[in-house]
Amino acid sequence: MAKYSLMPDQQKLVEEHLYLVEIAVKQYIHAFGRTPGIEWDDLYQTGCLALCNAAHCYNPEFPFPPYAVKAIRNALHDYCWSTVQYHKLLCPLDDTPEPQDTVAVEPFTVIQGTQIAEILQQRQRDSKGVVQKGIYSLMKKSEGYNSVDISKDFGVSPNSVRAWMSLAAKYLREDTELNQLLA
């Protein structure tokens, strides 16, 4: 939300319609208390900020209460969604589900021989761009890392890492020396 100061008529509008925040929270949000991070006080504060924003942006040609309720509801939904997403990231490691990597990496799942590891490292040095990142990701995957962990190293989405691994796997499947070692 932007920082701004309300004019006296806007402040009065907020004061007169403060009851809309409680109504919106009760009517539209049913998760507080049951979902981590979603508490009544936070919801109420978010609703109040949305009401202030609605008063600041309000066009007097239209009725205020319907506009304010929609603004409050949207802000509450955004807050709940972002809170749930944040708490998904903070779940205990024991409860963290392993994301399913759909990349076909059949022969490269485990690097067993040092000769294979050396060839992969050489191919990584010889390649550029996403193929190079993909080979690195495949090697990390063979060490037990998943695409979520690897994506944090690069600061990209796990889907990007999986796409890199797919391109690298395609590139490596065409490598005759590596295929001879794996045969």
Rank of each mutant, 00 (worst) to 15 (best):
L93A: 15
N74H: 13
W81P: 03
Y86A: 09
Y79C: 06
H77Q: 12
R73S: 08
P92T: 00
A75V: 03
T102S: 05
S82G: 07
P66Y: 03
V84A: 11
Y67E: 05
Q85D: 01
D95L: 14
F64I: 05
V69Y: 07
H87W: 14
N74C: 10
P65Y: 00
I72E: 05
C91G: 05
A68K: 00
V69I: 14
D78H: 10
H87A: 09
A75D: 00
P97R: 00
P99Y: 00
R73V: 11
N74L: 11
K70F: 10
P99R: 03
Y79V: 09
Y79N: 09
T96A: 13
D78F: 04
D101L: 05
A71D: 03
A104W: 11
V103A: 15
S82Y: 04
T96N: 07
E106T: 12
H77W: 02
T96V: 12
V103C: 11
A104F: 13
T83Y: 01
A71H: 03
T83Q: 06
F64C: 12
L90F: 08
D94N: 09
E98Y: 08
A75I: 05
V69T: 07
K70V: 10
P66G: 12
Q85W: 05
P99C: 04
V69Q: 02
L90M: 14
L90T: 14
V84M: 11
E98F: 07
W81L: 11
T83D: 00
V84P: 02
P65V: 02
A68R: 00
D94H: 09
D78P: 06
A68M: 07
S82F: 04
C91H: 06
Y79K: 15
H87M: 13
H77T: 15
N74T: 14
T83R: 05
D94S: 15
L89I: 13
W81T: 15
S82I: 06
L93Q: 13
L76V: 06
P99K: 02
D95F: 13
P97S: 04
L93E: 15
E98Q: 15
L76F: 04
L89A: 14
P99N: 03
R73D: 08
E106G: 06
D95M: 11
A71M: 07
T96I: 11
E98H: 12
Y67Q: 08
A71E: 05
E106V: 07
W81D: 10
A68P: 03
C80Y: 03
C91E: 04
T83L: 01
